[in-house]
Computed example of a mutant assay.
Amino acid sequence: YESVITHGFTMDEEGRKMSKSLGNTVVPQDVINQSGADILRLWVVTTDYWEDQRLGKNVLQTNIDAYRKLRNTIRWMLGTLAHDDGEDVPLDKMPELERLMLHRLSELDEAVRQGYDAFEFKRITRALLDFMVVELSAFYFDIRKDALYCDAPSSLRRKAAVQVVRHLFECLVKWLAPMLPFTMEEAWLDRHPEAASVHLDQFPAIPDNWRNEPLAEKWRKVRQVRRVVTGALEIARADKLIGSSLEAVPVVTIDDAALEAAIADVDMAEMAITSDLVISHGKAPQGAFTLDDVKGVAVVVEKAQDRGLVKCARSWRYTADVGQDPEFHDVSARDAAVLRELRALGRL
């Protein structure tokens, strides 16, 4: 690194050659002392080796922010895996959302291996960071929190989700270990305290049957519809119509046969993290929310309470069956059944 600065391949943020006489140098030891060695490594592996590299306070802060998101994602997985009993759900019994995540791991495995073979570290880190922030934290984990936190221990959906989080953790930590050795070692030993080191393990072997292009294509359409719904929810939240998305019941009008077919067997309320969701047909109603790049989908957000739904004290979802259980008066039927199971297991 010192050699790179001395020979002028690393510039400051304004594109000027680093020079002691200009006082614009960045001392690696200072970065390590302040932010940790893996922050400096993250900057190195995200640079384009074919261009002059730029480094300064703002560039470092960008990498610190990315690192924090990455670390928080791994920490969330470790918290979830604290409840992992090692049970596996057969692939053909898994919900489609879990199979989609396994498909994405199969795609990423190919990209990661090709990236390492070609020493294209920026390609690897960009793909993995985008996956962890966009597809995991803001999509898969966000959706599955309800199942992980509220479903019964016997729930197949919950078991499949924990299993997939296990696969996600094993793959991501091992893939990132050569580039962020300290952080990934810390995560690995927290999960496997009996292990010697993550750096003694090979990259995981991904089963061929995880790859599922037709499923991925279907879910590209599902996520298009979801994107319109979440956009409408953001507007409703900004307008103070709702607070949490669980307070909403989106009415989704679809005028596209392909999109309608894609979501036909998908619980879109679960995907949008709303208490309910109504599918309508035909042309968009007046004032409905739309997106220019998703034709044929329009959303009007209604309040769950206006539809007579009541908030569950356990899951915070608004349902029509809250209060109907003779023993648990303030929760939904789903949550009442879970509480009975937990009590029978001695966990309540």
Score class of each variant (00 low, 15 high):
127 A>S: 13
104 R>V: 00
278 V>F: 10
32 I>H: 05
307 R>D: 07
239 D>I: 11
339 L>W: 04
292 D>P: 08
200 L>Y: 09
230 T>N: 09
186 E>I: 02
177 A>H: 02
87 E>A: 14
10 T>H: 04
46 T>E: 14
283 K>G: 04
31 V>R: 06
56 G>C: 10
199 H>M: 11
128 L>C: 06
346 G>C: 03
345 L>T: 05
229 V>E: 05
138 A>I: 02
336 A>H: 00
253 T>F: 04
255 D>Q: 12
227 R>K: 10
337 A>I: 02
183 T>M: 04
258 A>Y: 06
106 S>M: 07
70 L>A: 13
15 G>K: 07
211 R>N: 01
31 V>Q: 03
45 V>L: 05
151 D>S: 03
30 D>W: 08
157 R>Q: 12
134 V>P: 01
97 L>D: 13
227 R>G: 07
229 V>C: 02
162 V>I: 15
171 C>K: 01
158 R>K: 14
197 S>T: 10
199 H>P: 08
299 V>Y: 13
88 D>A: 05
183 T>L: 14
323 G>V: 07
93 K>L: 08
31 V>T: 10
150 C>L: 03
193 P>I: 03
339 L>T: 04
259 L>W: 10
42 L>H: 05
265 D>L: 15
119 F>L: 15
200 L>R: 05
69 K>P: 01
246 L>S: 05
284 A>P: 01
209 N>C: 10
101 M>A: 10
322 V>Q: 01
274 T>D: 10
273 I>R: 03
2 E>R: 15
146 D>H: 12
92 D>Q: 12
347 R>G: 02
108 L>H: 07
174 K>Q: 02
277 L>W: 12
58 N>L: 06
110 E>Q: 14
224 Q>D: 15
278 V>Y: 06
39 I>N: 11
92 D>I: 09
235 I>W: 08
261 A>C: 01
149 Y>V: 12
151 D>H: 13
263 I>P: 06
285 P>Y: 07
225 V>R: 07
138 A>H: 14
